[in-house]
Structure formats: C-alpha cells, structure tokens
Amino acid sequence: MQRVNMIMAESPGLITICLLGYLLSAECTVFLDHENANKILNRPKRYNSGKLEEFVQGNLERECMEEKCSFEEAREVFENTERTTEFWKQYVDGDQCESNPCLNGGSCKDDINSYECWCPFGFEGKNCELDVTCNIKNGRCEQFCKNSADNKVVCSCTEGYRLAENQKSCEPAVPFPCGRVSVSQTSKLTRAETVFPDVDYVNSTEAETILDNITQSTQSFNDFTRVVGGEDAKPGQFPWQVVLNGKVDAFCGGSIVNEKWIVTAAHCVETGVKITVVAGEHNIEETEHTEQKRNVIRIIPHHNYNAAINKYNHDIALLELDEPLVLNSYVTPICIADKEYTNIFLKFGSGYVSGWGRVFHKGRSALVLQYLRVPLVDRATCLRSTKFTIYNNMFCAGFHEGGRDSCQGDSGGPHVTEVEGTSFLTGIISWGEECAMKGKYGIYTKVSRYVNWIKEKTKLT
C-alpha cells in the first residue's frame, strides 16, 4: 500500500490518463441519441435557420407576430419608411378606419389613436360632414345658397324668414311668412316636400332668348283662358290664391305678392273693366268669414305684352289694390325667389296649380277651390304637342294621358313649387288646347323671366 501511494504521488498524470480511459469505455446513459432527441424537440425550422439574422431580410411573422416588435424591426421587413409607417399605425392600436367614419364618399386613412378623412370636392370637416359648395344638395341650405369668396357655403332665406341657429334652416321672422300653410287642420295635408338634388348652379339658368321682337298675326285659340281631375282644397291650404270678379264672377285667378299687390295673367284683364279681388276665398257660393274683398285701382301688364300681336306672350300683369290686405292664416303671400332659384325650383319637376275653373272641358265651374299636382314636361315634348308657338318664356306641365289639367277660369292662378315646406311661385296658368285632352298640356308663363320686374313694381313704400 505504501508503494502504491508513492507511485500516485510521483505520477499524477498517469492516474488522470487511467481515469479518462475508464470513462470513455463506459456506456453513456444520461444523453439520448440524435434521433430520439429530435422526437422530443420537434420544432419547425425557421426561415433563416442556421444563418445569422443580421444578414437576412426581415420576416413579418418572425419579427412582429411571434413577439412584439419595434418600429426598427418592422422597418427591416418593409425596407421602406412609408410602408412601415402605414403598417405601424394599425399594428400599434388597430384600424381606426374600420367603422368607416368618413361621410359623403370620403376616404379614410388610419393613424395612431386617430384617423384622417380625405374629402371629395365640396366637403370638409373631420368626417367630411361639412358642405362647402352650393353645387351639392344646395349646400344643405333649406332655401338659398351662395358661395363666399373663400368658396364656403353661405345660406340665406327669402323675405319674412331668418336663418336658424344651425345656419342652414329657415324659420319665420314674421307672423305670416310667405308660402307657408298655417291653418292647423290643413298642415297635415301639406304636399310632399321637395329635397334639393345635386345641381350645376353655374349652368342652372337656361341660355334662352326671349323672342321679344317676333311679330306674329293673332292666333285663334280655343278655350285658351284655361282644375280638371283635381281635388277639393281645404280652407287655408292655398292662402296665396285669390279669385278675380268682373263682368262675371271667378273669371280668373291670381296670387298675393304682398298686402297691396296681386300677380295674374295679362290676358285676364281689360282696361276700363272694374275688377274686384277676393282673398281668403274657399267656396265661392258661401260666406265663410275668411274672405277679404278689395278693388283694383291700377293694372300693370308687362311692358312687352301686346294682345294685338299675341294674347299669351309675356302673359303676366300686376294688380294694385285700393287697401292693403290683412295677412292671416287664410290670406298669405306666395314666396318669389330670384331668377336663378325660381328656375331651379321649376326644374324640380312638379308643381301645384289651383283655381275655381271648370271641372271638365266646357263644363261647370268649381264651387270649392280645386288643386292638382302636375309634372313638368320637357321642352321637346311640349313643342311636338301643339302647332302653336311655345315661346321661351312659357313652359308645359300636365299629363300625356289627359284627364287632369287646369281649365277655363283658372287662368292667372299660381303654379307653385314647394321647397322644404315653403311654396314659391314658378308659373302662372296661361293657356292650353281644350282641357285635359290626351297628348295636350297646360301652358304656363315662366315666372323666372319676370321676377325682377315683379319685385321692382310691387315694392311697398
């Protein structure tokens, strides 16, 4: 034993070699072989497995989906700052455009905790909710729209109204504003409101030439003092309507412009014939205590009207009353817009006519005020429907199939267009061939041609 100890002390290297040989010859039971080890760690190889990531292109799944990435790591994937920024906006807080917040056709661009709407022409605001041009839906104005110097929408209202708090709607500024039905039992019968379409306001006024200088022999019209197929109006439903009495009662109609003036057809009036105007009328054979009678003290036909040349060209006249009318729910003026808007309103496509005229061709006159909704007829169809001249200051309205029309005794009465609950004068009943005849239409004086003249002559002093 002493000898062994001496050998170990003198030859430590020998001992180490012996131990190493023993270990190498022993069977290893701690580690699995290569094949079995792979069965336990069965993990798919990654895209760049075996390579240094710093030297390969980034992978979106590896960089940002398996674990949260930084902007720089995302930049490695896209290799483009702009594309990385677009991805980053949604990656950080989701897609803010998912709810489609942009209105009126706006395009949404996502941002971090926010979004941006790219608005089409005519709109602005956070969600493109603000109209900035009158060309689109009248700028959301209830009545009139004008573009300011910086191309912003400025709404306005006709006389007797003021802008509401929203700067879009119009509200009454006087007790009985024009064009409004205020009798409670008839307010439910107000005709369907007309909503502004998209309009090209630059070209809204037709490029028409008034044929002022045409000389033409007097034409022989049949029954051209021209509501057939209409309905009984309720008291106060058309408070701007008046009836004219002269040699015979209810020979023509008219509309209240203001307390002192009536507008009617020029062919209705004769110099030297006494005319009485009755406002607030409903049943011409009954006294309903809503009527107001006034005498006409002055007749002003349009300066281009000449019955000797043509009885229905420039067929418009103004009547001055001896005493002002007292405005109330049964006696209310009709609204008159400017030339541009009167023309736009007419193009809405349908209007209402009213009167006490004959209820059928050569038949009896109506006792109760009649009204009828009539569609506008395109000019080409209008011209083809008659052998008589249709001037540019006239328009056609009615039904091709016949059966409904204005008729004798309705002449001078109103053709009105309702705009968001307020009625505007767009025409004056003038003439036609018979009444409600198939293929024939009622012919009306186009008020847009005469609004400046009306307003100039009827100013209240």
Rank of each mutant, 00 (worst) to 15 (best):
K126N: 12
S156W: 12
T389L: 12
T81Y: 10
R162S: 10
T29G: 06
R162A: 08
Y201P: 09
H267Y: 02
K126P: 15
S182F: 08
N138Q: 09
V447F: 01
L319C: 07
K234H: 10
R364M: 13
T218K: 08
Y305H: 05
L319W: 02
N295P: 02
H302C: 02
L367H: 13
E124P: 04
I336G: 00
F395L: 00
F251I: 10
T422M: 04
V227P: 12
T158L: 08
E142F: 04
K168E: 11
V77R: 14
Y330P: 01
N100Q: 13
R191E: 13
N295Q: 04
N258R: 02
Y91V: 10
I15H: 04
F144D: 00
V331L: 02
Y352L: 10
K89F: 05
A279D: 01
P101A: 05
L23E: 01
G355Q: 13
V199N: 12
A397F: 02
S184T: 09
N304M: 14
T271Q: 04
D378E: 13
N151Y: 08
G402M: 09
T133S: 11
N328W: 01
I429W: 12
G363W: 06
G402I: 11
I256P: 00
S385K: 10
V228D: 08
V374L: 05
V4I: 13
F121I: 05
V243D: 02
S354N: 09
G439I: 02
V30W: 15
E456H: 06
S70P: 05
V277G: 00
N5K: 15
V4C: 11
E35Y: 09
I344W: 07
L367F: 13
A173F: 09
K455C: 04
D110Q: 15
S365K: 12
K339N: 10
S448G: 08
C97F: 01
M65E: 13
V257L: 06
L321C: 02
L14S: 04
S11H: 13
D198L: 08
K137M: 11
S217R: 07
M437I: 12
Q408G: 14
C178V: 00
E124G: 15
H400V: 14
A173I: 12
L383I: 10
T81L: 07
V202N: 12
I7N: 15
L369T: 14
V447M: 10
V359P: 05
G246I: 02
T342I: 02
R226K: 10
V277Y: 00
V326Y: 13
Y441N: 03
N80W: 03
S354M: 13
R449Y: 15
L346I: 08
Y22T: 08
H34V: 09
G106D: 02
L32Y: 15
V296H: 01
S385P: 03
F121N: 09
N393R: 03
C396Q: 02
A250N: 12
I15K: 06
N135P: 15
P172S: 09
Y352V: 06
Q370Y: 04
S448H: 10
F224R: 09
R3Y: 08
G413F: 04
L23S: 01
F176H: 09
E54R: 08
D338W: 03
N393V: 03
E27L: 02
W118R: 12
F55Y: 10
C155W: 00
H289L: 06
S350G: 10
C407K: 05
Y22H: 06
K293Q: 11
C157Y: 00
V277R: 01
S255M: 03
V419K: 05
N452V: 07
K39E: 13
W431C: 09
A37T: 15
P175I: 06
S365Q: 15
D410R: 09
G105K: 08
Y444T: 01
E418D: 15
T85V: 07
V195T: 07
C335A: 00
S365P: 07
Q2P: 14
Q96P: 06
K293V: 13
S107C: 05
Y91L: 10
D232C: 07
S354C: 11
C335P: 02
G412I: 13
S329N: 15
V92T: 10
S184Y: 10
G246S: 08
L376C: 02
I112D: 14
C252W: 01
D223P: 11
P239A: 03
E433Y: 06
R3C: 11
N295A: 06
T215I: 07
L327E: 03
S350Y: 06
G349V: 02
T218D: 09
Q2T: 08
S182T: 13
S204V: 12
Q216R: 06
I334K: 00
E72Y: 07
G280N: 02
C28N: 02
F31W: 12
V257W: 01
V419L: 07
G363C: 04
T29I: 14
V92I: 09
S350W: 13
A164L: 06
K39I: 08
L32N: 15
G125N: 03
E433Q: 14
E259H: 05
H267A: 03
C119K: 02
I210R: 08
D338G: 11
C435R: 04
T225Q: 11
H400I: 14
P12Y: 13
K274G: 03
A192D: 13
R140P: 15
E67C: 04
L130P: 07
G442A: 14
G409I: 09
Y330V: 06
N36I: 08
A149T: 12
A337C: 02
L460A: 07
K347W: 04
C145L: 01
W453S: 01
R180E: 02
N113A: 10
K446H: 05
V451W: 03
E456V: 07
H400K: 09
F196N: 12
D95A: 15
T461M: 12
L24Y: 06
V416Q: 07
I443G: 03
H361K: 15
D198M: 12
D249K: 02
K234G: 10
E10L: 13
C145S: 03
V269I: 14
Y91R: 10
I7T: 09
N304Y: 12
R191W: 08
F360R: 14
Q57K: 11
G421Q: 10
I390W: 08
Y330T: 03
N283W: 08
H400D: 14
S411R: 10
V451Y: 05
Y312F: 12
M437W: 13
N166R: 02
E72V: 15
L24I: 08
A279H: 00
I210F: 08
F345S: 00
V174M: 08
K51Q: 15
W88P: 15
N42R: 05
N5A: 11
F360N: 14
K247M: 05
A308K: 10
V377Y: 02
T290C: 05
N295G: 05
F176E: 03
P414F: 14
T332Q: 04
V277Q: 00
Q57Y: 06
V257N: 00
S423W: 14
C170Y: 00
I390Y: 13
L189P: 12
G409Q: 13
A279C: 03
V359I: 09
S354G: 13
P44K: 04
N48Y: 10
P301R: 08
E27D: 12
E53H: 06
D131A: 04
D33K: 07
C396I: 02
P177H: 02
Y22R: 02
G412V: 06
L163S: 03
V242K: 00
N304A: 10
V447D: 00
R46V: 13
E129L: 03
N258E: 01
S350P: 12
R46N: 09
A308P: 06
S156N: 05
D338A: 07
E61R: 09
G160Q: 04
C141R: 00
K45V: 10
C69D: 04
C435S: 04
E433K: 07
C155T: 00
E270S: 04
C382Y: 02
S430D: 02
L189T: 14
C268Y: 00
V419S: 05
V227F: 13
E285D: 10
R294Q: 02
